[in-house]
Amino acid sequence: MNDKTFFGFVSPSVIIMVLLMVIPLMTAVFLGFHFVTYSNLESPQYVGLQNYTEMLTDPDFWASFNFTFIYIVTVVPASLVLGFGIAMLLDQVTAFRGFFIAAALIPHIITPVVGSLMFRTMFDRSGLYWYLLRALFDYDFTMTTTTVRMLIIGQGIWQTTPFAMITLFAGLQTLPKQLMEAATVDGANAFQKLWHIILPHLRSLFLFISLMGVMDAYRVLDQVLVITKQNPLFRADTVMYYNYKVAVMFSRLGKANAMSILTVFGIFIVLIPFLRITYKQQMESR
């Protein structure tokens, strides 16, 4: 394909990405240096680095990073382990496999706001899990900072496991049969096969799922908004939810934009190695 046709074909996509992604990012940088609220949108007031210093000295900002970190290091490994276990189980069955997969996918593709609401109502007064906890363990579930955080993490695991499951299940289907047969002939037991053949075969997939998981976990917002009922007493803000709060509830648009720019730098720490790997792959395969 020559240059002229190529640029003709990609121009709609590229123009919309430049207009609606590059320009907004530049606007975010611009607004980050200004004092803006909803009442002075037309006339932002230049304040230099003040928004950034305010943000970096804000304990709630660091607390939100702290909880996001806890969220990532619990949800991502848990969804990997659970997803792998379920993928192995699915690999064992042929009857009703489609049904099991369809049911397991529901938490992943349901609207996140709705999924979080459904998940939370199970623990509300007169919800099923609330009732079971009380009837079986005599434990009265009430919302506190700790339990709200646990609910958010639990919902995260419920929602992200199906993605790990389906990806790893697809990976298991490409496992070389001869290798497994050779291992059986050599007398390897199930654990040895798992450790020496299956896990190495799936290694790149584990990496891929973790990367996606980290990026998605970094963006968690709707779930926190629904599960905390927007109640500021529960100190369970994630980075994006705090960013949202600064913009929507505190009306500090300039400060919120400064925070957005800081979070963009944050994600680039994870993103740059990933982009480099992809760049190399693409350069080799073209």
């Binding site: 990405m17 609606l20 992604m21 963006r219 963009v264 990933f274 760049y279």
Partner: peptide
């Protein structure tokens, strides 16, 4: 690669400028 970078960026970074 640019598209992949955009995909990974937090939505908040776009939504507030969009509002403006």
């Amino acid at each position: 690669i640019a598209a992949l970078g955009f995909r990974a960026l937090p939505r908040m970074a776009f939504s507030l400028p969009y509002y403006f």
